[in-house]
Design a protein around this nucleic acid. Structure first.
Length: 467
RNA sequence: GACCCCAUCGUCUAGAGGCCUAGGACGUCACCCUUUCACGGUGAAGACACGGGUUCGAAUCCCGUUGGGGUCGCCA
């Protein structure tokens, strides 16, 4: 069996969006799974819209997702001459021809076709015309002489056999009038030259696959295997819009999603392995195949992504998670967390990670560590700080003052026996403590809060609140 | 409009003729756990788009209808 080579070939006209990320993931998984090669090609032939910034965004996005590519990325524009060379070869072999149609003529053809309810098809008017008839001063384009009868069938690993009648496909332009190659030609030549064996891409390219197949055949290139995966849709079933998740990967990073969670979610969107839901990348690397990619488009669902992300957060080690949240903390504080603060964060992380779905929620849950005294209680928390509560706080300050070792277990034991002695429910003591210490009604387990805050800070905050 | 693709709970999906009175997960609801919020546990509601065939038997095969999506550039 030949070595498998896949590629991801985005055009650098914006960020790496979520659909592209999934396409890249599938290509990466398939290549890595079979000990093959995963290549990256930047399709920057549209000089108007391609930007260096977008190229960097794509690199960053893939890197964030943990998808490493082999070798240097191929920049398509730089290979223009090779693409043209193939076009000229086709021309010399009579498999392509010069077409002198003006844009106006084409426009007319388009309108006629539209009026007749037919798809736009170039009518082949220069297909067999002699170059002598060429109008003076018109720079011709080069068109591919596509087969006019018979059919082209694409053997697709996801879609099955898809047949196109050749009469539906017209003679596409492979070289523009300025001599530059067009997309379909460039893709075919690059994929061939790069030795790509499996083309895994969005199914919006299915029709292109037919035209490209004809080109492969004409050029004498081996036709690669295809796998056209369904596009990702928005919650409403329509095209994924920005407000529905069609964002760049960096937006997901900012929202606090973990790359591993993203990989798992994206993998599961359109691919399955029985009833398995949580699939580590390690496991995916053993299981991934094209046969189990679904054929119907999947809708992007933040609720499920959140759930998966929550799972990965809970199962992250404290060290990993600390590294992941530090940037978020820094952004919030406007400075890096110092050593002491990092130690505090790490200490409370085991309690915090159980209750967060993303890194921003973790940051939010950690806010009590960074507030200045006196702690401002929010509206809900103030309800737990009425006069009766303040009285209880005073008692608790006394009780806590006698605790010899300042641990969550010991402070809890002290407060519990106080609640028994005073015959008040634990909640009657815990909620005021929470409100006084964090200014919120929701926080990590309160005795863990006491422990990380330390005796001095705890007592000081309680004193502030007790008035 | 033409061509191509798709069609199982609200969502992601399992299902490749009998194992299906259709399974799992997310979400929703209820209960349990509980110092808050989560986590965890238990349970509930919830789907084979419709109509014809084929077959002893169809979610699974065929045809049609309906619905959805994609493509129809000297963009990629």
């Amino acid at each position: 069996m030949t070595k498998i080579v896949t590629r991801f070939a985005p055009s650098p006209t914006g960020y790496l969006h979520i659909g592209g990320a999934r396409t890249a993931l599938f290509n990466w998984l398939f290549a890595r799974r079979h000990g093959g090669t995963f290549l990256l090609r930047i399709e920057d032939t549209d000089r108007e819209r391609s930007t260096e910034d977008a190229v960097q965004k794509i690199f960053q996005g893939l890197t964030w997702l943990g998808l490493d590519w082999d070798g240097e990325p191929v920049m398509q524009f730089a290979r223009m001459n090779r693409h043209a060379e193939v076009a000229h070869k086709l021309l010399a072999e009579g498999k392509a021809y010069h077409c002198y149609c003006s844009p106006e003529e084409l426009e007319e053809m388009r309108n006629t076709a539209k009026a007749a309810g037919k798809p736009m098809r170039y009518d082949g008017r220069w297909r067999d015309r002699d170059a002598k008839d060429a109008p003076a001063g018109v720079k011709p384009v080069v068109r591919f002489k596509a087969p006019q009868t018979g059919s082209t069938v694409i053997k697709d690993h996801v879609q099955g056999d898809v047949t196109f009648q050749n009469e539906q496909l017209d003679d596409l332009i492979i070289l523009r009038s300025d001599g530059t190659p067009t997309y379909n030609l460039s893709v075919v030549v690059d994929d061939h030259d790069m030795g790509v064996t499996h083309i895994i891409r969005g199914d919006d390219h299915l029709t292109n696959a037919a035209r490209q197949t004809q080109l492969y055949l004409a050029a004498g290139f081996a036709v690669p295997d295809f796998a056209h995966i369904p596009l990702i849709h928005g919650p409403d079933g329509a095209k994924l819009s920005k407000r529905h998740g069609a964002l760049g990967t960096e937006a997901y990073a900012d929202m606090g999603y973990l790359p591993a969670a993203m990989r798992n979610y994206l993998l599961r969107l359109g691919w399955s392995h029985g009833d398995d839901e949580i699939i580590s990348t390690q496991q995916a690397l053993e299981w991934f195949d094209l046969d189990h990619v679904g054929r119907s488009p999947a809708r992007f669902d933040f609720a499920k992504l959140n759930n998966v992300n929550g799972h990965y957060i809970r199962h992250s080690s404290d060290d990993e998670l600390l590294q992941a949240v530090l940037p978020f903390i820094a952004k919030k504080l406007g400075r890096d967390a110092n050593q002491a603060e990092q130690a505090q964060i790490k200490a409370i992380l085991p309690a915090v990670k159980e209750r967060a779905k993303d890194l921003n929620e973790i940051t939010e849950a950690l806010q009590f560590l960074f507030v200045a005294r006196p702690v401002q209680a929010d509206v809900a928390a103030q309800k737990h700080l009425d006069d009766a509560a303040k009285a209880r706080l005073k008692t608790m300050i006394e009780t806590l003052g006698t605790v010899s070792s300042w641990t969550a277990t010991d402070t809890e034991a002290a407060i519990r026996s106080l609640s028994e002695a005073q015959q008040v429910k634990l909640g009657q003591l815990a909620q005021p403590l929470r409100a006084a210490l964090t200014g919120r009604t929701v926080s990590p387990p309160i005795f863990d809060v006491l422990a990380v805050l330390g005796r001095e800070e705890t007592l000081a905050r309680l004193g502030d609140a007790a008035g």
